[in-house]
Simulated scan of single mutants.
Amino acid sequence: MSATNCQTQEFKLSPENHEFVVPKKAIKSPDEMIAWQKSEAYFEYLGFILAINESIKGKFLNSETPSSQIVEQFLKMLNKLDEWITQIPPVEQPQRFGNQAFRTWHSKLHDLAFEELKQVLPQELHRAILEIVEYLLEGFGNPTRIDYGTGHEMAFIMFLCCMFKIGAFKAEDKVAVALKLFQRYLEIVRRLQLTYRMEPAGSHGVWSLDDYQFVPFVWGSAQLVGHPRIEPQHFVDHGVVETFAKQYMFLGCIEFISKVKTGPFAEHSNQLWNVSAVSTWSKVNSGLIRMYKAEVLSKFPVIQHVLFGSLFSINEAPEGANCRIEQLGPPSAGPRRM
Rank of each mutant, 00 (worst) to 15 (best):
V240E: 06
M33R: 07
M77E: 14
L209C: 00
E131M: 09
K25G: 00
V275K: 07
M163K: 08
E32Q: 13
M158R: 05
Q69L: 15
G287Q: 03
E124N: 15
M154T: 11
M158Q: 11
P122M: 13
T86L: 08
I85L: 14
E19Y: 13
F312E: 02
V206I: 09
F169S: 06
A277G: 02
Q123T: 15
P335S: 15
E72G: 03
Q100C: 07
W105P: 00
E54Y: 11
R184D: 08
H126R: 13
Q95K: 03
V236Y: 11
L81H: 15
F182D: 01
I314A: 06
Q73D: 15
L137G: 04
K12H: 13
E54F: 03
R145C: 02
S310K: 13
F235N: 02
I157L: 08
M198F: 04
K59P: 05
I88M: 11
Q73I: 12
L251C: 00
T195R: 14
Y185C: 09
I289D: 05
F97H: 03
V22H: 07
G141W: 01
S282L: 05
P232E: 13
P216D: 12
G329Q: 06
Q100H: 11
K25D: 03
R324D: 07
G205I: 00
F102N: 01
L328E: 04
P94W: 12
L251F: 07
A266K: 13
I325S: 02
C6Q: 04
S286Y: 07
I56V: 15
S63P: 01
K170E: 14
I52W: 09
C162T: 07
Q304D: 04
V225P: 00
S298C: 09
G263S: 04
P330W: 11
L179R: 08
S2R: 03
E40Q: 12
N270W: 07
K76G: 09
L130Y: 12
G58K: 10
P143H: 10
K38E: 11
L194G: 02
I314T: 05
M163R: 10
D237A: 01
E267M: 10
I146A: 01
Q123V: 15
C162L: 08
V215K: 01
W84L: 15
C253D: 09
S67Q: 15
Q9H: 14
L194A: 09
D173A: 09
S282P: 00
W273R: 03
V21I: 14
A178D: 14
A222Q: 12
E16N: 13
E32K: 13
G252N: 10
F97M: 12
K299E: 04
Q69G: 13
R96N: 02
I289T: 10
K293Y: 11
Q95H: 05
C6P: 00
G58R: 11
A171P: 06
R337M: 12
N322K: 13
A35C: 09
T4P: 04
T280I: 05
M77G: 12
Y185M: 12
G226A: 08
E231R: 06
Q271H: 10
Q9F: 14
V175N: 01
